[in-house]
Design a binder for these strands. Structure first.
Length: 209
DNA sequence: ACATTAAGTGATT
DNA sequence: AATCACTTAATGT
């Protein structure tokens, strides 16, 4: 496990000394599929690094409406959580494990020190921020400019990509919640996609062709 | 066999 | 695209 983290961090261009520090100061945190990691309003004292699995990051309002923002996958850090430790802010996001995942939790207290001590860490954080930002822009585009059927297809393809599987085990209801629409609409559009032979529908299961 | 939950569909706004 | 009202299908007890 430690080897896995080390090689993952090195792939991201972090120098040896920093890799050692990250491994020494962090702890392993396993999350099961569907398990919530953080909700809006909660303060985080650790920065999660995704070793394996996938986290779904989204926005949620008081009524429980939510919109998907982006996925965090193996090797990626939640750079957004860094802004929490630099200011007195609490999380504006909700994170849920999309699949069983292994996370490496690093205490925020080290962040500032590392930022000045290791150029590679600063680069890592900025790059990670940039990547998240790009994904966010893409998601905003899809909400603003794409029709619901295109959004659905993007959703299905994203899922397929992040899980590495053609099979998506979700109900229409769950998908509707994630896209912030109604189940009926999702069912109709999925049916249309099925007629176009792009997917196959089953109970609690969708196959992307 | 019955109840529950998921999915499909026409009509209306 | 959302909502209602209803039907049909799948699954659990």
């Amino acid at each position: 496990m430690v080897d896995q983290i080390a090689s993952l961090l090195q792939q991201n261009g972090l120098e040896e000394a920093l890799v050692v520090e990250i491994i020494q100061s962090g702890r392993l945190f396993k999350v099961k599929e569907g398990m919530p990691l953080i909700s809006p309003g909660a303060a985080a004292s650790e920065m999660p690094l995704v070793i394996s699995g996938t986290l779904r990051i989204m926005r949620e309002d008081e009524q429980g409406n939510e919109i998907f923002l982006y996925y965090l996958e193996g090797g990626e850090a939640c750079a957004m959580s860094i802004s929490c430790c630099l200011g007195p802010q609490v999380s504006q996001f909700k994170a849920v494990a999309e699949a069983d995942s292994n996370l490496w939790m690093v205490p925020m207290v080290h962040i500032e020190e590392w930022m000045s001590k290791y150029p590679s860490f600063r680069k890592f954080v900025i790059d990670s921020y940039q990547a998240r930002f790009d994904e966010l822009m893409y998601t905003i585009d899809s909400i603003a400019f794409m029709n619901m059927d295109e959004r659905l297809m993007k959703y299905l393809l994203d899922k397929k990509q992040s899980s590495g599987s053609f099979v998506i085990n979700k109900t229409h209801e769950q998908i509707a919640t994630e896209l912030n629409t109604s189940r009926v609409v999702v069912s109709r559009l999925l049916k249309k996609l099925e007629r176009e032979d792009r997917i196959e529908l089953h109970r609690n299961r969708i196959e992307v062709l």
